[in-house]
Design a binder for these strands. Structure first.
Lengths: 212, 212, 212, 212
DNA sequence: TATGAATGAGAATTCATTCAT
DNA sequence: GATGAATGAATTCTCATTCAT
């Protein structure tokens, strides 16, 4: 593909027609399928196109190069995830901190577990690209949402809100990822999640400046 | 995940001569260097060989294929890490649970942070291969060590030791990984770590069956 | 024999466009040329592609691997040869057995001698692959054709048709191959052929059950 | 190996000690085994050495290069075969032509069938090298022996001895080879052989100038 | 003399990308 | 626009041969 450097990672065209959207969706879905079936090594443009039922040429109408495809796929996924988290946070505004943490864990866990293979596939594909910007951007968005949520807690005002927030997010996201990596059985997963909530609440308790 | 064909991943020959051991070490080190400098995409056998100062042919005397190289590299790393954790756990036998957790976090954090670029490089390279077995093996070893440690605690006997142990390990390892992924600045890292210890201790407190 | 792994030997894609058919033909012809010029040892994919005036990549669009190319080349050749023999046999239906044998020797000899270098090249290339299936298939087809022909002879009904047929085919084909291997001069070839016919007729005579 | 051209194909040293002879034998036997197990494509010096229980280095003490090994192997085999045929011919001196032909077929068939896999392996390996000289030399030797035998027949003097002899040899050798290639079952083999003898005798009959 | 580690040219194969139809 | 054949640089991997020990 056009080897201009730095290469634009966004999709070439914004879909205007329904047909284009359908094609894009098919391509994204195909990418995930290939990732799952063949692994990141065998994720080739040809395979994706074939699976998506379009020609390679068509794929190149939508993505200037392969990296752009993977990038956009992850971007899309993180975008949806971020929105979900934002919604969850917004919904908890003004409630008690404990409920907030419960909701956050629930929301994230749920989002990751709905289509576990997809989660797994994307975890692997991210290693393919220079994802620093992507992840940083996602993290910033999430931080903003969770911080705002926590700040609105009716019963809690930690001494260092940012720090506590960062810990919560890092611990929750990291734990979920590790659980995936270890391939924990369903049974163990449930206990882990309860423990995780417990631990988060404990952090809130111990970092509470003064109750409101 | 990836349907890697059942190719043997172990190294082809065990080094018999001193020269061979040196060669092997050079190859491993070179792999890490290339991984750091060029990223997993540009990790080619030629590049590794060149950097290691040997010929490609030599590399293939020791590794049946590229995957085997990456696999063995990770295996080696996890082996060393496991040993370190085992030593740490052994050293804490019989102490109080709180100290144990502190030591575990300290040990793991330290191990990962000593050569952060290496850690990062390996985190990325491991996505290249079918690492289920590798990770499972490492996890089992660590679980054994930490469980034994916790069971020996002078002041603590959780109702469900295995479950608590699993949570602790998952949360600690996951948090560290996520911290790496988010590329947290040194300053924030310190606070995160203190929080993590706090949370782990809290879990121990709340799951204590009866004090000894 | 050789434990060739069960890789599909059929061509990867059937040509759909005229361009593709031309490409395929060029590749086959180039393979024969390289085989003749450089021998089976120097039959490399690069050389074939170059000679065919296409890129290596193109070759790999049509053949999954080098073996498949050689296999298909031989298959094609044997296919044509079988058709020729079948036509010859069909043309002799109902004639006298002696004429049949004459025709068969003539037909086979002719087919092999038209482009002797090609014949020689293929005899050598076939050693490269696990040709059991190929040869068996060809043999079965030929056996069917010659048996049917002999069975229709107006003047002859051997006690054991199958056995006689097998001998005739084996002797004729084997003799021709050996003549090639010994690199017999044109002059000697003529006599050999006459003798061969004589011998085949003699076999018919001596195995005749009863004349019709 | 030393790339002098034309390269000497004979073994580097004539074995003087028992040890050397044993090593040579092991190498030859290993070559055949590898040929059978892995096919001519995978016949590598390393594999042969390993199978023979010697180092590659040692192999290169005996053969200047791989071609020399294969060449010598075939040479050895053809040498033994020629000797056998010569002995057989000598033993038939002065007998009747029919007996001669019977003996020749019997002898050749026997020699090829004793270790059929070896025969098969060598048939394939010959394609690897420029065997014209080798085969020509063998053919000449055999021709001399069989011609001399036939010339001594008590009951037969063909008009054109050379021509008849050539035919006999070509037909017999070719038929046997083809039988191998077709992988004929034991049962069919027996009938084929009887037919072959019949045909050879018929040729003698029909080319007899005058009985002695 | 024997060994087997090292070599590196050369072969097979892959795959992102282009472009004529 | 869409297609898919063609491209060829880049990559993996092989193996005959050498040479220090």
């Amino acid at each position: 593909m056009a080897a201009t450097s730095p290469r634009p990672l966004a999709p070439r065209k914004r879909p205007r027609q329904a047909r284009a959207t359908a094609t894009l969706d098919a391509i994204f879905e195909a990418t995930i399928q290939v990732l799952l079936r063949d692994g990141p090594q065998r994720l080739t443009t040809t395979r994706v196109a074939e699976r998506a039922g379009v020609s390679v040429g068509t794929m190149y109408q939508y993505f200037a190069h392969k990296q752009a495809l993977i990038y956009t796929l992850n971007e899309r996924y993180l975008e949806a995830l971020a929105e979900r988290i934002e919604a969850c946070c917004a919904a908890q505004h003004g409630t008690r901190a404990n409920r907030m943490v419960e909701a956050l864990v629930e929301c994230y866990w749920q989002a990751k577990t709905e289509r576990p293979e997809v989660t797994r596939a994307l975890y692997r594909s991210v290693a393919e690209l220079d994802n620093v910007a992507l992840v940083a951007n996602f993290a910033a968005r999430v931080d903003r949402a969770t911080t705002a949520m926590l700040a609105s807690a009716s019963d809690h005002a930690p001494a260092d809100l940012d720090s506590v927030n960062r810990t919560l997010v890092t611990v929750i996201f990291g734990t979920v990822r590790n659980a995936f990596e270890r391939n924990l059985p369903e049974a163990d997963t449930e206990g882990l999640r309860r423990h995780l909530v417990t631990m988060c609440k404990a952090l809130l308790d111990q970092t509470a400046g003064q109750s409101a």
